[in-house]
Simulated scan of single mutants.
Amino acid sequence: MSLTPTLQEFVDDFAAVGEQDRLMLLLDHADALPGLPARYADHPDLLERVLECQSPVFLFVEVDGGAVHVHATAPEEAPTTRGFASILVRGLDGATVDEALAVPADLSSMLGLERAVSPLRLRGMSGMLGRIQRQIRERTAG
């Protein structure tokens, strides 16, 4: 198991609260999802839709000088999905390629969300991370 320091902090925060409070903590993260940079806000066609999510979630990964930057949108009407997107965006920002690719696919389980959100939402969360890691591999190939 390998997490960025920020993702580890998030995992620790979720572990520190009871199971019933984890959903509220996830919803708190929804409010912290950064907005898109203007270069993406004006060109939504550059973003990839996360089809595993029931809600329209879009993301794009940049790798600049070996550092990963994730940009994502998720509707305010989907706060659990938006909260997980926020965790990924902030938790991977500035990570090295190797650090970002080492994040385990079961991050949502590490956060203790199996009982807090539906299996469909968990699938969407895994889909977000999978697409981020695939985009990183594509941008660093060759």
Rank of each mutant, 00 (worst) to 15 (best):
R22C: 05
L23R: 13
L25D: 07
L26R: 03
L27I: 15
L27S: 00
H29D: 05
D31N: 14
A32P: 00
A32S: 12
A32L: 14
L33S: 01
L33K: 05
P34L: 11
G35D: 15
L36D: 03
P37G: 13
A38E: 15
A38G: 06
R39F: 12
R39H: 14
Y40Q: 02
Y40R: 07
A41T: 06
A41M: 01
D42R: 15
D42C: 00
H43N: 15
H43W: 04
H43A: 14
P44D: 02
P44G: 01
D45C: 02
D45H: 08
D45E: 15
L46G: 04
L46A: 12
L47A: 01
L47N: 01
E48R: 13
E48T: 13
E48W: 08
E48Y: 09
V50Y: 04
E52H: 10
E52M: 11
C53Q: 11
C53D: 04
Q54C: 00
Q54F: 00
S55M: 02
P56S: 04
V57S: 06
F58C: 10
L59Q: 05
L59R: 07
L59T: 07
F60R: 12
F60Y: 12
V61I: 10
E62M: 03
G65L: 06
G65K: 03
G65Y: 04
A67E: 14
A67Y: 01
V68S: 05
H69D: 05
H69Y: 11
H69L: 11
V70C: 07
H71W: 06
A72T: 00
A72H: 00
A72G: 00
T73C: 03
T73V: 11
T73S: 12
T73Q: 09
A74P: 02
A74F: 03
A74N: 02
P75Y: 07
E76G: 11
E77I: 04
A78Y: 05
A78S: 13
T80W: 03
T81V: 11
G83F: 00
F84Y: 15
F84P: 01
S86N: 09
I87F: 03
I87E: 01
L88H: 10
L88T: 11
L88R: 11
R90Y: 05
G91W: 13
L92W: 09
L92A: 05
D93L: 10
D93R: 13
D93N: 14
T96C: 12
V97F: 12
A100I: 08
A100V: 10
A102L: 08
A102H: 09
P104A: 12
A105Y: 00
A105T: 08
A105Q: 10
A105W: 01
D106H: 13
L107Q: 10
L107G: 07
S108R: 04
S108W: 02
S109G: 14
S109Q: 15
M110A: 11
L111M: 11
G112H: 09
G112I: 08
L113H: 05
A116P: 07
A116M: 08
V117Q: 06
P119N: 07
R121A: 01
R121D: 00
L122A: 05
L122S: 03
L122D: 01
R123S: 14
R123H: 14
R123P: 02
